[in-house]
């Protein structure tokens, strides 16, 4: 939103370019166009989920149910495909199923005032359980899925797979949502100062509800895309992926305290994580080190954010008592 955030996004972009360049020095094949496209396509579900997570985090909430929601919507999509439902309906159903789980999260946070971390931890577990109930614990394999189901995200249009185009489309929609709609503005107001938002006539709970519903709908969409791309559906799909999603947001400068962040940040954060994950195996780093490196990137991002927000002049209008208390320390 403001100048220093933009500069942070520039910094992240620079980091991505430097990292890619450094890898390319040793492994020129990494920046072959096909490989870059492949990396971007691999990262697309993460980008889609990160944008949904972003609006939730902007509202001072968190959605831990995204990965389980993705897996549930994906399983529903796969089962509908096995039952012979046409593809457009399947995609619609996946998005609707995801949105429903998101809306349940939202209602629980809005109406019952339960902390979001507790709500989504609960729905996360429920969603995984539902997959088991629906599928009876069975896998739905490559052979069971129809050609159209698997082919759609992989179809190449103008040199890019549809999956990548969908991610780009979601990014563009979010740019408009955040920059040009009252709801997008409300996300920032609610997270930036919920008290003031109330006094301005913004319904904080309702805004949070929409954030969760959006996040859920995107998880549903990503669910179909994931299952069709990997051509398998089972209970543990994308297990633990919610942490990657939150990490992408944090690396992208979405403040966990709410009210600060940008679409570009979430996008670049996801891209950074995606490139790291794709590059480390290429340069021969073990998966365990990959996790450590991802973790280090998160901590570095948080440390940078924390320093940003401590800049002098940020806390203004403090009460007389605060001033006095600070003067003593």
């Amino acid at each position: 939103m403001s100048r220093h955030l933009k500069s942070r996004e520039a910094l992240l972009l620079l980091a991505i370019v430097v990292m890619t360049g450094a890898i390319a020095l040793r492994f020129p094949a990494f920046i072959a166009p096909l490989n870059l496209i492949g990396t971007f396509t691999d990262t697309s579900p993460l980008i889609i989920l990160a944008l949904g997570e972003m609006v939730v985090i902007l509202c001072r909430c968190i959605d831990l149910s995204v990965a389980a929601n993705l897996a549930l919507a994906g399983m529903i999509a796969a089962m509908l495909d096995v039952a012979g439902v046409p593809l457009p309906l399947i995609i619609l159903a996946a998005v609707a199923a995801g949105a429903l789980v998101g809306a349940i999260n939202g209602v629980l946070v809005w109406k019952l005032d339960i902390p979001p971390i507790v709500v989504t931890l609960g729905t996360m577990t429920i969603a995984r359980g539902m997959i088991f109930v629906l599928s009876g614990g069975k896998w739905i394999n490559d052979q069971a899925l129809s050609g159209a189901f698997k082919g759609f995200p992989r179809a190449v249009v103008l040199g890019l797979p549809v999956l990548a185009w969908i991610a780009i489309a979601v990014v563009l929609v979010f740019v408009v949502l955040i920059r040009a709609t009252p709801l997008g503005r409300a996300f920032f107001a609610v997270g930036g100062n919920p008290n003031a938002a109330v006094y301005t006539g913004i319904d904080v709970g309702r805004t949070q509800f929409w954030a969760f519903t959006l996040s859920g709908a995107l998880a549903g969409l990503a669910g179909y895309l994931w299952i069709s791309r990997y051509a398998v559906a089972y209970v543990d799909i994308a297990n633990g992926f919610e942490l990657d999603v939150v990490a992408a947001c944090v690396i992208g400068g979405i403040s966990i305290a709410g009210g600060a962040g940008s679409v570009a940040g979430a996008f670049l954060g996801a891209l950074f994580l995606g490139i790291t994950k794709n590059a480390l195996p290429v340069i021969g780093v073990s998966p365990f080190w990959q996790m450590a490196i991802s973790g280090a990137a998160i901590l570095a991002a948080v440390a940078i954010n924390a320093r940003e927000s401590r800049r002098p002049g940020r806390i203004i209008l403090k009460s007389v008592e605060q001033t006095a208390l600070e003067a003593r320390t």
Binding site: T181, P182, G184, A189, G191, G192, A196, T200, G201, L317
Partner: peptide
């Protein structure tokens, strides 16, 4: 006004227009 007024993180002009968005936007777009 610190707790209930200013929304930090939003630029000045967006703080001003927050309750007037209905008037400044057209068909749902700011």
């Amino acid at each position: 006004r610190g707790k209930q007024g200013a929304i930090k993180g939003l630029p000045i002009f967006q703080n001003v227009t927050l309750p007037s968005l209905g008037r400044t936007s057209r068909s749902g777009f700011l």
